[in-house]
Simulated assay, not measured.
Amino acid sequence: MKHILITGGAGFIGSNLALKLISKGYEITVLDSLSEQIHGKDPEESSPLYNSIKDKVKLIKGDVTNIGDWKKAIAGQDAIVHFAAETGTGQSMYEVNKYVSVNIQGTALMLDLLVNMSNGVKKVIIASSRSIYGEGKYFSKELGHVYPEHRDGADMDQKDFEVKYPDSSPLELVATDEESKIHPSSVYGITKQNQEQMVMTVCPTVGISPVAFRYQNVYGPGQSLSNPYTGILSIFSTQIKNGNGINIFEDGKESRDFVYIDDVVDATILGLEKEEANGEVFNVGTGVATDVVTVANTLIQNYGIETPLTITGNYRLGDIRHNYADLSKIRAKLGFEPKVDFKEGIRCFTEWVNTQEIKEDHYEKSIAEMKKKGMYR
């Protein structure tokens, strides 16, 4: 396989993947709408992500909800890496139609063409997400491994943010493996589950090998610093750089698995190049849970900027409490091992941020939108 289509290839993960594949001799086509939310205004002039791949890829500026753009993009391709999607847990809860249209309908158009149009595609990699799990996997002394449902708003109103399970004592968090229960708690998570299942179901019927990667929280140099809807490291960094305080949801003990961009690119290329990946679903993370207060304090320390930190007790509907990846499968089948730990990754990320123009902080505007819709309490 030499000709690779990356949808959303001007985005954070897509552009980094494109550059690494080009260095390995692949010819890359990118289908991307250059969304203002990610790339800012006048993206073809001012977007660092777009400019990093400009003149190095064949760019089709288009939309995955447009069948004509898909037809142009698929022609002559050997494989597709499908990253194009609306992202953002909170935003998905009140922009439901947009998320369903882009994420689900866009993927449906791709699959419809792969089934019904003559093409040379041999493999499709779909960017899934840890969000499809909803709450992660836990151990109960009384019941063994359990998968708690969404937390109760009445409990969280009383500042009780821990997950619970019927007839169990307090739960112990454990790593979430690929066989864990799928029960997303946001519209975004539902759309990623749907994307994954459609690709894994339809592609084999026409002799195309599918691979799904359930990415954890991806971060690193190059990610958007102006998008207030997703990317906690970027959001906090923009607040710090603007001299604004950081308001942390819940009690600050909620945790995520933060995985560095280079490791995500390496895992994705393993999926593209290795036959062992065909037909499989893999977690991509570090296997380490880091709580939000630690994230904020680490950023403040690295920037050396005194920043007030407030734990608000507020919460967003659709957010989960904890989730971190079990990497046993991807280690065994693909030989993947994350190389960049959180401390080193944050150092590289903050050094890059220090070279960037300070972006306007739109975070409070995004919170106001959620409050208005009843999604932030």
Score class of each variant (00 low, 15 high):
Pro166Ile: 05
Phe213Ile: 04
Arg214Lys: 15
Gln356Asp: 06
Glu44Lys: 12
Leu109Gln: 13
Glu369Met: 11
Ser186Glu: 01
Glu275Leu: 15
Ala212Glu: 06
Thr201Val: 10
Ala277Leu: 07
Val174Asp: 01
Lys329Glu: 02
Phe213Asp: 05
Thr107Ser: 11
Thr307Phe: 14
Gln301Thr: 08
Lys253Asn: 13
Gly153Asn: 14
Val163Thr: 01
Leu109Ala: 05
Gly120Ala: 11
Leu34Tyr: 00
Ala79Asp: 08
Gln356Ser: 09
Met93Asp: 06
Ile240Ala: 02
Lys333Ala: 05
Thr355Val: 12
Pro43Val: 14
Ile38Ser: 09
His183Lys: 12
Ala10Trp: 03
Gly88Ala: 11
Tyr99Ile: 07
His82Leu: 11
Asn314Gln: 12
Trp70Lys: 06
Gln197Cys: 11
Val187His: 12
Ile104Glu: 15
Lys181Tyr: 11
Tyr165Asp: 03
Asn354Gly: 13
Ala175Thr: 04
Val353Tyr: 04
Pro338Glu: 07
Asn217Asp: 12
Ile330Asn: 01
Asp319Met: 04
Asp55Thr: 12
Leu317Met: 13
Pro338Ser: 10
Gln77Cys: 09
Gln197Thr: 12
Ser118Met: 04
Pro338Asn: 07
Ser128Asp: 08
Thr307His: 10
His39Leu: 14
Asn97Pro: 00
Lys54Glu: 10
Ile248His: 05
Gly252Cys: 00
Thr350Tyr: 11
Glu360Asn: 11
Arg377Phe: 10
Thr29Ile: 09
Leu5Phe: 03
Ser328Gln: 08
Thr307Asn: 09
Gly245Pro: 11
Lys371Ala: 07
Gly252Gln: 02
Glu142Asn: 08
Gln105Ile: 09
Asn323Ile: 15
Val121His: 08
Val206Thr: 13
Ile125Pro: 00
Trp70Arg: 08
Ile60Pro: 07
Ser180Lys: 12
Thr230Met: 12
Tyr94Glu: 02
Asp266Val: 06
Gly318Trp: 10
Lys181Trp: 06
Asp326His: 14
Pro221Arg: 10
Ile320Trp: 10
Glu142Met: 11
Ser328Pro: 06
Leu317Ile: 15
Leu21Asn: 04
Ile80Leu: 04
Pro48Phe: 03
Val211Asn: 05
Tyr94Ile: 02
Gly318Thr: 15
Tyr315His: 07
Asn194Pro: 01
Ile53Phe: 02
Ile208Met: 01
Ala79Lys: 05
Ser35Pro: 03
Asp63Leu: 05
Phe12Ser: 00
Asp42Ile: 10
Gly374Pro: 07
Gly153Tyr: 14
Gln195Ser: 13
Gly106Tyr: 04
Val102Phe: 01
Tyr165His: 08
Gly313Ser: 01
Thr307Lys: 11
Lys274Ala: 08
Gln216Gly: 09
Ser180Glu: 09
Met156Val: 00
Ala175Phe: 03
Asn242Ala: 10
Val293Ser: 03
Lys241Arg: 14
Tyr26Thr: 13
Gly313Ile: 00
Tyr188Gly: 01
Asp263Phe: 14
Asn66Val: 03
Glu27Phe: 13
Gln91Phe: 10
Gly106Thr: 01
